[in-house]
Write a protein that binds this DNA or RNA. Structure first.
Length: 423
RNA sequence: GGAGAGAUGGCCGAGUUGGCUGAAGGCGCUCGCCUGCUAAGCGAGUAUACGGCUAAUACCUGUAUCGAGGGUUCGAAUCCCUCUCUCUCCGCCA
């Protein structure tokens, strides 16, 4: 959520930034409503002031044993007026809130302006795609061949876009998750194991609601949702709190299953485990003071990159353009891992600085110094990284001519020492 | 699922015969004093949001806020209703 005062002071700049995000007109009639609100607020407050003074007067008169009937009647009539104005005001304020909740974050000045992914910038490249001396298979063939991924039986259980992992496949998924958590814990992130279902308030706090309700799985009969990412529970852990400066920065990491309805994406990545309704992910979340949030974004991205490096998976880092960024983000780096089956790099992590956008929605603040005013924190999040896509990348990048798959060295301790998955 | 207790400021905790109570007291924190240092002690200060005024996110000023929403009343932290959450006991359950 943007600061209403900021919009009021720089409407043109905000409008321009929203155009860059392909959201022209998102400001809607905010300015008119805001103007109406302030004038109405002035009126009601004036009347309330009178009521407060008059009521006190009534108290005094009664205490002296004097007649206060006339004044009481006057205040009673004014009460009607207050009620009507308050209702009008509530209507306007909910209109303003609706607009504000649907406005995306403003891109940081370092973000390239562009309509879509064609304006993204490649920041760096790590590793080199392997040259195969045989025709490499896609993971959706390797998995069933080794009997470690079972798409057909998964469909029997849950329909399309679900996968059953079996045997060493199941073990590999778990190994990857544990390796991620251990690595991030070692680098200062506190491990958290949150609920997989959260309230609508949480979803509003991180920006999934109200705009993206269709992307999520809602719990029947409850105001709750399956988490689409651990970013939601982790960031909302400190919702409605005032933190002390010494508490910051907070670094957290968590494994959760992630649940996404992904309405509208049907037809993309239909094969394999790239796009699923349920997938596993280890997330990184930081809650920091405003001054260092961009340094923290660089460090968080490097923390996410580290696990790919340790796994020996080639990847690149992409700076997303203004038109390609997520709703809550002010600046996002995507990590893309090399996938031989696609013969291109495929998103495996997204690292964002949301600045105070989520903090405003979730009301997460901190006390900078003893004398200074309370301020909103900055929140950051990044996948560290998606487990399912990592398993797919391992299967494809580590496949051998005989159909077996080498286990990356760092994962072997998590696989009972296994060096190679074979039939 | 059944029965009961509770929800107050950064934290703890008063206040429930309705009326200067935005809210006692304590802790914490800040500034100052004091004492070789530290600890202790003394004094002062210390909520948030949204308006108005303003160059100001500084003063000053107004309104709102005692879990949330609604009601009664001239006036509600205090009375009534609904909801949410927490705790205790019973049942059920991994």
């Amino acid at each position: 959520m943007l600061d209403a005062k900021m919009i009021r002071a720089n409407p043109d700049a905000v409008e321009a930034a929203l155009r860059n995000r392909n959201m022209p007109g998102a400001l809607d009639n905010f300015l008119e409503l805001d103007e109406q609100r302030r004038s109405l607020l002035g009126q009601v407050e004036e009347i309330k002031k009178f009521r407060n003074q008059a009521s006190q007067e009534v108290g005094k008169l009664k205490k002296q044993g004097l007649d206060a009937a006339e004044l009481m009647e006057k205040v009673r009539l004014v009460g009607q007026e207050i009620k009507e104005l308050d209702e009008k005001l509530n209507l306007i304020e909910s209109g303003i809130e609706k607009i504000l909740l649907n406005i995306p974050n403003i891109p940081h000045e370092s973000v390239p302006v562009g309509e879509d992914e064609s304006s993204n910038q490649e920041m760096r490249l790590w590793g080199e795609p392997r040259k195969f001396d045989f025709e490499p298979l896609a993971h959706w063939d390797i998995g069933p061949n080794l009997d470690i991924l079972d798409f057909e039986r998964a469909a029997k259980l849950s329909g399309a876009r679900f996968t059953v992992y079996k045997g060493w496949g199941a073990r590999l998924e778990r190994a990857v998750i544990n390796f991620f958590l251990d690595t991030h814990s070692k680098h200062g992130y506190q491990e958290i194991f949150p609920p997989f279902m959260v309230t609508a308030d949480c979803m509003r706090g991180t920006g999934q609601l109200p705009k993206f309700a269709d992307d999520m799985f809602k719990i029947e009969g409850r105001d709750m949702y399956m988490v689409p990412t651990a970013e939601v529970p982790l960031t909302n852990l400190y919702r409605e709190e005032i933190l002390e400066e010494r508490d910051l920065p907070l670094y957290m990491t968590a494994y959760t299953a992630c649940f996404r309805a992904e309405a509208g994406s049907h037809g993309r990545d239909t094969r394999g485990i790239i796009r699923q309704h349920q997938f596993n992910k280890v997330e990184l979340v930081k809650i920091v003071a405003a001054e260092n949030s961009y340094d923290e974004l660089e460090k968080l991205t490097l923390d996410a990159e580290r696990v790919l490096q340790l796994l020996g998976l080639p990847y690149r880092v992409i700076l997303l353009s203004s038109g390609d960024m997520g709703f809550s983000s002010a600046k996002t780096y995507d990590l893309e891992v090399w996938m031989p089956s696609y013969n291109e790099y495929k998103e495996i992590s997204s690292c964002s600085n949301c600045e105070d956008f989520q903090a405003r929605r979730a009301n997460i603040r901190y006390r900078p110094g003893s004398k200074e005013k309370i301020r909103y924190v900055h929140t950051l999040n990044g996948s560290g990284v998606a487990a399912g896509r990592t398993v797919a990348a391992i299967l494809e990048n580590y496949q051998q001519k005989d159909g077996s798959v080498l286990v990356p060295e760092v994962l072997r301790p998590y696989m009972g020492g296994l060096e190679r998955i074979e039939k």
